[in-house]
Amino acid sequence: MTIPTIAAVGTAVPGNPVGQDDIRNFAAALFREGLPHLERLMPVFENASIEKRYLAQPLEWYRMQHTFSEANTLYEQIAFDLSEKAALAALSKADINPGDIGAVLFVSSTGIATPTLDSKLIQRLGLSAHTKRLPLWGLGCAGGVTGLARAAELVTTTQKPVLLVAVELCSLTFQRNDFSKSNLVGSSIFGDGAAAVVLVPKQQGPAVLGSYSTLFPDTEDIMGWDMSDTGLKVRFSRDIPAIVREHLPDLLKQACTQWGIDQSQLSHFVAHPGGAKVLAAYSDSLGLAAEKLSGAYQVLRDYGNMSSASVLFVLDKFMSETLPTGEYGVMLALGPGFSAEQVLFQW
């Protein structure tokens, strides 16, 4: 029986690093004219546990309102460039010939392109014209874990290496004239970046052993996009940490039952760093010591929340810092739907 394994992870970020204090001051000036009691909301920047982020454009670009067409044109250009860099890094680290890739999964939720960018990526990287394609859109922050699960399944069916690419330019969705709390909170945490993973049908890294997906009925209002004349407008609820605390323990227990293991056997936790409060909810609800999520906190600190790509940055850090001992681990992420995604691995 083939057991898909993670051979390598590659990452890439745009060339516009910005400190959290600079973004805070910038946002304060923009929101002052339209958001009442702004001073009571501004601590969201200090409490985000973020020091730096990378943006698709220089900070001044966000001072003006831009059309959806303008922002999406930039998305197509920059997202493709970052996807190529991350994919090349992953292929090189895995020592995989691009022509051996059997399928490409492309995950993104912050821009639109048809044909999807994986079609250009296949040609630029020199992959076979017969490479299977599976673009996944709209999964938001859950996309990295979902994509990894589907990529592992494709490794099993094709018996070939599979390339997963997740790229998000969250900052290009910023709405200059949206004075909602959601837009302010989004500006306090979102960053841009891309990650690529090569999975192979042989023992070369962490083994992907199973996945578990959960959709919560009638929860569309918790997280997602609203479409406006100027583009994608962020929507999320302040109740997300409370939902994690209420439901995650049972969801993890259900997943472990399906996987045929006891929850006590889980030694590693690779979590999507959706925000400091979400990570705290993970720790509290699962009874985890802080060091169990140290990789997620470090990625949040250095990059912010890059939606689907973030958890793959955490995976990259985990693989580079953790020696294989044969222990079980779980990858965790939440996304629009409202949904939860879990992947079991062994390393």
Rank of each mutant, 00 (worst) to 15 (best):
P135I: 05
G329W: 01
H268C: 12
F26V: 02
R124Q: 12
P241A: 09
I50R: 11
W137P: 01
L300S: 09
G304F: 15
A207T: 06
L184C: 03
P98I: 01
Q263Y: 03
F313S: 06
T158I: 04
S180D: 09
S69I: 00
A280Y: 11
R245M: 05
V208I: 13
Y303M: 10
G143C: 10
L105M: 09
L344H: 08
A12C: 02
S69D: 06
K160W: 05
F216W: 10
S320F: 04
V200M: 02
K202V: 04
V208H: 15
L293R: 09
A152K: 01
N177I: 14
P36D: 03
R245T: 06
F236W: 09
E70G: 07
L55K: 00
F68R: 11
T219R: 02
G295M: 04
Y212M: 09
P135L: 03
H272Q: 13
A149C: 07
G10S: 02
L35C: 05
A255G: 11
S182M: 10
E33P: 03
Y62Q: 05
V167P: 02
A194D: 11
K181E: 15
E291F: 03
A280T: 14
N25R: 11
L293Y: 04
P17Q: 03
G335S: 11
V270N: 14
I261K: 04
C141F: 14
L139D: 08
L164W: 01
P14D: 14
G138Y: 10
M319Q: 08
T173A: 03
P14M: 04
F345R: 06
A151W: 00
A142G: 14
A90C: 05
A289T: 11
G186C: 13
S228C: 10
L215N: 14
V44N: 12
A129C: 11
F236D: 00
L30F: 03
T116G: 08
I3Y: 04
W259K: 08
L266W: 02
H247P: 00
L279N: 14
A29N: 07
L117A: 14
D316E: 15
V270R: 10
A290T: 07
A90Y: 01
A28F: 06
V44L: 12
S283W: 07
M64I: 10
P135N: 13
T67C: 05
T158P: 09
I78N: 09
G99D: 04
T146I: 10
L117P: 03
L172Q: 05
G275N: 09
